[in-house]
């Protein structure tokens, strides 16, 4: 039997929509699984790498220190690292907070806006979450390729199940993925 490619996936500063889109391949997921086997992935619930992987898929950019840590682990452990979705590629919706990065204390301003100043927030103690278990936020949101080298990008928000299927099958069978017109979407 032909050796299967090993695939790891992670969701960083994203909404998990890109992972949901992986499931949107529907029954073709079974076809993909004839060519790949999962390593670390929220779809499998392994928390760490079990062995070196051929393909790593990253959803979301980096908004906190844990995102950077995971992304670097993926770069170290995956031969081909693929950024999927606008969040991973250009920051996506989280990157909107970079609009205040030119302020004197951008992170404080961001947290104040989110937890205290917004008219729709009810937070009587004006408490900003700071439990030690929470990863520290970065000064701004970074795209994946600003943090590590990214080999390949699949745009979309999320990329459709069709697009993910075609690109994943190409990568799993050692072909260069091609994008036909309808496969390129930035939304």
């Amino acid at each position: 039997m032909k050796k299967k490619k090993r695939l790891a996936t992670a969701s960083l500063a994203g909404c998990f929509g890109c992972h949901m889109s992986l499931l949107d391949m529907d029954e073709r997921l079974l076809e993909v699984l004839e060519h790949v086997e999962f390593d670390r992935s929220p779809l499998m619930d392994f928390k760490g790498f079990r062995q070196r992987c051929d393909i790593g898929l990253i959803e979301g950019g980096c908004c906190n220190e844990d995102n950077v840590h995971v992304l670097r682990q993926f770069r170290e452990n995956c031969d081909v690292l693929v950024a999927i979705g606008q969040c991973a590629i250009m920051g996506g919706l989280p990157v909107m907070r970079n609009a205040i990065m030119h302020a004197d204390d951008p992170l404080r301003e961001c947290l104040e806006e989110a937890y205290n100043e917004s008219p729709r927030v009810l937070n009587p103690g004006n408490h900003i979450p700071n439990d030690p278990a929470l990863p520290l936020l970065l000064d701004k949101v970074y795209t994946c390729s600003e943090v590590v080298h990214i080999d390949f990008q699949i745009p979309g928000c999320p990329p459709s199940g069709d697009t993910l299927y075609q690109v994943l099958m190409a990568l799993a069978t050692g072909k260069k993925p091609e994008f036909s017109y309808g496969m390129i979407k930035y939304d």
């Binding site: 609009a99 990065m101 390729s145 390949f152 699949i154 994008f179 979407k185």
Partner: peptide, 18 residues
């Protein structure tokens, strides 16, 4: 961008102006 097939990372930084 779709017509020109832009999918991969470019060498330019995102300026993210305000």
């Amino acid at each position: 961008a779709y017509r020109l097939g832009i999918t991969q990372a470019s060498p330019y930084p995102y300026l993210q102006p305000v």
